[in-house]
């Protein structure tokens, strides 16, 4: 059965990669869907996570420490964007861009060079590999396990008083202030949590490929939005836990789609163009269908 074999050899790496990236997509879900902010900090904070974690490992530190440090660095990046936006009243999009640009320099400092390798050094995946698991199996278990823990923790968090107030802030900040909640703080907490997860994802990706590269964050926000939309289209907007699961599944399906189009012979150079066009099409669909319906109303005979 050569077809099944090639399908498996195509899908398994895609699923594994998708699960590692899904942690980032969960982070983007928090800003884009819950806070209603398009946060470009992501492009810098994912690299920051990879850079911090690989730097720790290279210096002989434990991979767990490196991964946790990556998460903390992401929190800091989110704090900066949140402060620029809420305290200094810079528009959210621009605040994210400013932090992203600043992080480029920060990341170069953290890594010392434009890319660092941790080839054959111990990573979070090493213990699993020592159990005799294949590379992709260890990614799937680690990425999938972490994603499951994270969405369960977020499901709990967004049900708490604090989490509910954050959700409401993305929905109607006027009402939230009238109920005595400092919306600035809610936005900052949301941005921190989001970027913490993005950096955590960066740490996982860096360890999986055994290197960090200054360029690796480029286009990550678009990959994240594409994954979000794929998840929502396939699995709908239902119960909150289901939504979180669909975010993870969206990240996986996105990677499978990419693997398939590459298999079909798409030039890798065109990948970002392909993703950008897909996201643009998906984001504009509601507007375009509404506009089309509107124009039909103007022409009752058609």
């Amino acid at each position: 059965m050569p077809f099944i074999q090639s399908a498996v050899s195509l899908a398994v790496p895609a699923i594994a990669l998708g699960l590692l990236w899904s942690v980032m997509v969960i982070g983007i879900y928090i800003t884009y869907r819950i806070l209603d902010i398009a946060d470009l900090t992501v492009e810098g904070s994912i690299t920051l996570g990879a850079a911090a974690c690989t730097a720790v490992i290279r210096a002989g530190g434990s991979p767990a420490v490196g991964t946790i440090l990556a998460f903390i660095c992401g929190l800091a990046a989110g704090l900066i964007t949140g402060t620029l936006h809420t305290k200094l009243r810079i528009p959210a999009l621009l605040s994210g861009i400013l932090t992203m640009i600043a992080l480029w320099s920060v990341n170069l400092h953290v890594m010392g060079t434009a890319n660092i390798s941790i080839l054959r050094m111990k990573t979070l995946f090493t213990p699993l590999a020592n159990l005799g698991l294949s590379k992709y199996a260890s990614w799937i278990i680690m990425g999938g396990g972490l994603a499951l823990i994270i969405i369960t923790a977020l499901y709990w968090f967004f049900g708490t008083e604090l989490g509910s107030a954050i959700r409401a802030t993305g929905n109607n900040p006027n009402m939230v202030r009238a109920q005595g909640v400092h919306t600035d703080t809610m936005i900052i907490v949301g941005l921190m949590l989001s970027n913490g997860l993005v950096s955590l994802s960066g740490a996982l990706i860096g360890q999986s490929q055994s290197f960090a590269d200054i360029q690796m964050g480029m286009g990550s926000i678009v990959i994240g939005l594409a994954s979000l939309i794929v998840g929502e289209v396939l699995f709908g907007k239902r119960h909150f836990y289901v939504r979180l699961v669909s975010v993870v599944l969206g990240a996986v399906v996105y990677r499978i789609i990419i693997a398939v189009v590459m298999e079909l012979g798409m030039n890798p150079n065109d990948l970002k163009l392909f993703t950008a066009i897909t996201v643009a099409a998906a984001l504009s669909t509601p507007h375009l269908t509404a506009a089309l319906r509107g124009s039909h109303k103007l022409k009752p005979n058609s």
């Binding site: 968090f157 049900g159 008083e161 989490g163 509910s164 409401a168 939230v176 109920q179 005595g180």
Partner: peptide, 20 residues
Amino acid sequence: EENLALANRRGKRRTLRWGI
């Protein structure tokens, strides 16, 4: 009920206790 629960905590600190 979530809206009411938010309002029921007006003027109080938002903690990590369950929202409702």
